[in-house]
Simulated assay, not measured.
Amino acid sequence: MLQIEERAVVEAKAPGRPGDSEKITINLGFVDLGHIDLLVSEGVYANRSDFIRTAIRNQAERHAEVTRQAVARNRVELGLRHFTRADLEAARDRGERLHIRVLGLASIAPDVSPDLACETIASLDVLGSLHASPAVKAALHDRLR
């Protein structure tokens, strides 16, 4: 059976935070895509991305209790977590190794060296997106879950 699908690039933006987004690619069948386009043409949604973002938010809200329990059980930080060079240097000076667990966006400042990241970050578990220099990402590759 041959299934024809259209690939759509969706830009998932946080409300009120233009530019803070991650692009994803999804496959949609023509019928699903037609339903979306109909709702857009009827003015229910501004565009395809608006529909998909709304659907994702609705599903996340529908399963909010599961998320809440998982965040509490797994000790995951929810939202945006930014690590500066000063944060990592302070951890190093305390002899502390960080186990970073974030649901959302984890970012490591551009001035953090790969050596400092390796010295201070024992593990990195990000459900969402990790923003860091290519060199830091490469250095932490074996610690990413």
Rank of each mutant, 00 (worst) to 15 (best):
G29F: 06
T67M: 15
A91I: 05
E5A: 11
S49G: 14
F51A: 07
L80S: 10
T54C: 12
T25C: 13
P15W: 07
R97I: 03
T54K: 12
H63G: 08
T25Q: 14
H35E: 04
R145N: 08
D125R: 05
R53S: 13
L28T: 00
S113T: 15
R57P: 04
R145D: 04
A122Y: 03
K13P: 01
A109K: 00
G16W: 03
P110D: 11
V136Q: 00
R17P: 00
Q3H: 14
V66Q: 13
H82G: 09
K13W: 04
I56E: 06
I4A: 06
R57L: 13
L140H: 07
R62H: 15
I100P: 00
A109W: 01
A12N: 03
H131E: 08
A14M: 03
A70S: 11
P114T: 03
C118M: 07
R48I: 09
L80N: 08
I26L: 13
L103A: 11
A12H: 02
G19D: 01
A86F: 09
L116M: 11
I52E: 01
C118T: 10
S123H: 04
A138P: 01
N47D: 15
G16K: 03
I108C: 00
E61G: 06
S107E: 10
A14G: 02
M1Q: 13
A135L: 10
C118E: 09
E77T: 11
A135Y: 02
V66H: 12
E61W: 09
L130D: 06
E119G: 00
F83Q: 03
H63M: 13
L105C: 06
R101E: 01
E42D: 14
H63F: 13
S107F: 01
V9A: 07
I108G: 00
R75E: 14
F30A: 04
V126N: 02
T120F: 07
N27D: 11
D142W: 08
S107Q: 09
D37P: 01
E89P: 02
E96H: 07
A72G: 07
V10L: 12
I108P: 00
D111S: 09
E96L: 11
D50C: 12
S123E: 06
A90C: 02
A72L: 14
R143Q: 12
R97S: 10
S123L: 04
Q3T: 15
K23T: 10
R75I: 09
S133L: 04
E65H: 10
R73G: 02
V136G: 00
D93E: 15
H131A: 07
G29L: 05
L39C: 09
L130H: 06
I121V: 08
R85V: 03
R68P: 05
